[in-house]
């Protein structure tokens, strides 16, 4: 669906996209990176389970929600890739981090 034009001015970083290690230019927004990797959707809805993908790319529609570094519901279009970032497709409402444990 999309491809990224080469840009040798940018430093490359390693990230994990759905568990797969890839190299992308530092500072690219996560949504653009995900789409240019050939992934067609970024989340499923919690109600009907239907697939959704970035729609506005400017932070207003909340369709691009992904799990980024373990935190669900992040707008991938306004989050920028960093070395070692872990990015996952979000299923429904996602999950909460584990609460603190009691004995």
């Amino acid at each position: 669906m999309f491809k990224q034009l080469p840009n040798d001015q940018l430093e490359m970083v390693d990230i994990l996209l759905n568990g797969e290690k890839i190299q992308v230019p530092l500072g690219t927004n996560v949504a653009a990176m995900t789409l240019s990797q050939g992934q067609r959707y970024t989340r499923t809805t919690s109600l009907s389970g239907s697939k959704r993908a970035p729609f506005c790319m400017m932070g207003v529609c909340y369709e691009c929600l992904m799990v980024i570094d373990g935190i669900a519901n992040q707008r991938s279009c306004v989050t920028y890739v960093k070395q070692g970032m872990q990015i996952e497709t979000q299923q429904g409402v996602g999950s909460l981090p584990e609460g603190a444990h009691h004995e």
């Binding site: 669906m1 999309f2 491809k3 990224q4 034009l5 840009n7 230019p25 690219t28 927004n29 653009a32 990176m33 789409l35 240019s36 067609r40 959707y41 970024t42 239907s50 697939k51 959704r52 993908a53 970035p54 729609f55 506005c56 790319m57 400017m58 279009c77």
Partner: peptide, 24 residues
């Protein structure tokens, strides 16, 4: 709401901000 339908401005932002353009 189908993935693959986006706003035109989104297409423009993909290019301006990330050099990403339609491939097919």
């Amino acid at each position: 709401t189908l993935p693959g339908v986006m706003q035109a401005g989104a297409g423009q932002i993909l290019f301006k901000a990330a050099g990403v353009i339609p491939s097919d």
